[in-house]
Each structure stands twice: as C-alpha cells, then as structure tokens.
Design a protein around this nucleic acid. Structure first.
Length: 306
DNA sequence: AGCCAGGTTTAAT
DNA sequence: ATTAAACATGGC
C-alpha cells in the first residue's frame, strides 16, 4: 500500500526523524539517506513502514509505503498511527508564538524550525524506553535497549531485509530478571520492566486509556510501580502520549541545556527549569523537547557507532 | 585518576 | 533526615 501524508505545516521531516538516525544502535526506528523505516504492530500483524519527504518544510508531503499491504480493516488504523509516530499533526503555532517572543529561546526555534516531536506507537514502548534510559548516558542506554529488542522482539523480513520489532508486553512478561540483568541492565530495572509487562499483558494496567487523564492522575497511578518515578512518567508522557504539558524537569540533560542555552550560570535546579518553562503554558513540554534536542545535537554531533 | 553522564528505591547511618 | 549503592562505558 502506498499513499501520501500531508502533515500540518511547518514540518521538517528529515530533522524530525533524523533524531533516530543519530543513534543507529537503536534498531527499531531507522533513518538514513532520507528514508525512515520502522515496523508497526497492528492487531497481531507486523507491517513495515517506509516514509520519505516529497515536499518542503512549509509545504510538507510525505510518501509512505506499508509492507505487506494491510487488509481493509487495518488501513485506517495504520494511517492514523503513522501520522502519530511521525508527529505529523503536531501544531507548532502557539509554541512558536511564545518562544519567538523570548530572545533567548528564539534562536533555538529558528535553528529547529519545523521540528516536531515524534511519538512511540504505544505508551508501553515509551515507558520501557524511559526505564532503560534512567540515569545512564544515552549511548549506553540505547545499546542496552537494543539488546532487549534483539532478544525479545520479533523479526520482520521484507524484501530480503530484516527489521527488529519492539517487544510485546506478552513476551517481556515471560522474561526472567537474571536474563535481562545479563544484558547489562540493573536487577531493579529488569524486575520493573517485567512487572510492567505482566500488568499490561494481564490487562490490569491499561496504559492506552490514560491518554486523557490529567498529568497528576497519570503520575500518581504510575509512580506506585516500583522503579517508576516522576522523571520516568514525565518523559514517557512526552514520548508516548504527546502530552506537551509534561516537563521532565529532573532530567540532567534538560537542566544542563536550560543552563547553557537560556543563559544561566550554574546548573539549574528542577524547580528553576519549571519556572523558566512556565511561560510556555501547555506547550512547556515542547520547549523542553527543543532544549533536549539542541543539547543532543551539540553533544552527539556525529553518528554513534554500535 | 577520578568524576560525570537524560533516576529511583531501599537500607544503613 | 541524609547518604550510599546499584547497571555500562567514554570523554574530559
């Protein structure tokens, strides 16, 4: 199946999905030479998505291919999900309005014009990613995550090329802590990941129903799980739910970024991050995302090796 | 060499 | 109430 997506303008496709190509060790979202590829699980079936830009930042158009072609029933769900993971429907107008009026923030927006926040297909995936990224440097965390994906995720082969699929809750629920520990994750993270997978697979934890809960409701509910704290929930809400009112203020990289790019002297506190991003209102999470992206561009200018 | 890098919990002071 | 330790690994 081939079709065209018209994202809300402006949309810089290569900048937006290019973040994935910056960390090739992460093997679920692929980006190289202008082509984005990843496997989506729809129903019980895996489909490879290939997308590339066929337009301009101010007149965005994406050409998309889905392999194997989905049945009639799944077509609509797949199209909707692709728009979601690419951030095609994100509205930057209000965020840019506030940001451009701030002389410290305006250069960041000008440099990243048309960058949208990408999303994980499922909240579960974002939550597992957040746990693996706790406290570790990004390159290390992504390598550990890759081992998890390689061990527990399915493989979809299309036209002779194999693609990794993010593991399902069901498969991860059957993992044993020592196995995950053996991949380099801490025992605590291993237990936490399995615990969450069991709850999701068992239907007790229905993450997808939390999309329109308040920040506080989501946070209160999820931080009851051992190993899930405020940062994990806030980070997950940005990446998995597209909740741009969430700010992972404890994030060391965000604090560093705010310090450097908003002109502070010493590394700012989480409280200071919240204070400085408060003028962005319900788009403060977008401000956090732009700051984190700016930080990553500077810190990881080259592609990272495996 | 040693400390820091995209946290959070638990247990020992 | 504070502090230490736990997961890997490269850069400064």
């Amino acid at each position: 199946m081939k079709f065209v997506i018209v994202p809300k303008s402006p949309f810089n496709f290569d900048l937006t999905v290019g973040i994935h190509g910056r960390f090739p060790a992460q093997c679920v979202d692929l980006y190289s030479n202008g082509v984005y590829e990843r496997v989506l699980r729809i129903g019980e079936k895996n489909h490879l998505i290939k997308a590339q830009s066929a337009g301009l930042v101010k007149k965005p158009r994406l050409s998309v291919e889905v392999l194997p072609s989905p049945g009639e029933v799944d077509k609509k769900a797949i199209k909707k999900k692709i728009r979601w993971i690419l951030g095609a429907d994100g509205d930057l107008k209000e965020f840019y309005g506030v940001g451009l009026a701030n002389n410290k923030f305006a250069p960041i927006i000008k440099k990243l014009y048309g960058l949208k926040a990408v999303h994980t297909p499922t909240i579960f995936e974002a939550l597992i990613i957040a746990i693996t990224e706790q406290q570790l440097g990004l390159p290390v965390a992504i390598r550990l995550r890759r081992r998890l994906v390689e061990r527990y995720g399915e493989i979809l082969t299309v036209r002779g090329k194999s693609y990794h699929v993010f593991p399902t809750p069901s498969v991860l629920s059957r993992a044993k802590p020592p196995d995950i520990r053996g991949m380099g994750l801490s025992t605590k993270k291993a237990e936490c990941i399995i615990d969450i997978a069991k709850r999701v697979a068992g239907g007790e934890l229905r993450l997808e129903e939390m999309r329109d809960w308040s920040l506080e409701q989501v946070s209160d509910s999820l931080t009851k799980i051992k190993g899930v704290g405020p940062w994990t929930v806030e980070y997950m809400m940005l990446r998995g739910m597209g909740r741009y009112d969430a700010v992972p203020a404890d994030d060391i990289a965000l604090r560093s970024s705010v310090t450097e790019f908003l002109g502070e002297k010493k590394r700012v506190s989480a409280a200071k991050v919240r204070e400085l991003l408060e003028p962005f209102g319900k788009y403060r999470g977008y401000a956090a995302f732009y700051l984190l992206y700016t930080y990553a561009l500077q810190k990881y200018p080259q592609k990272l090796l495996l």
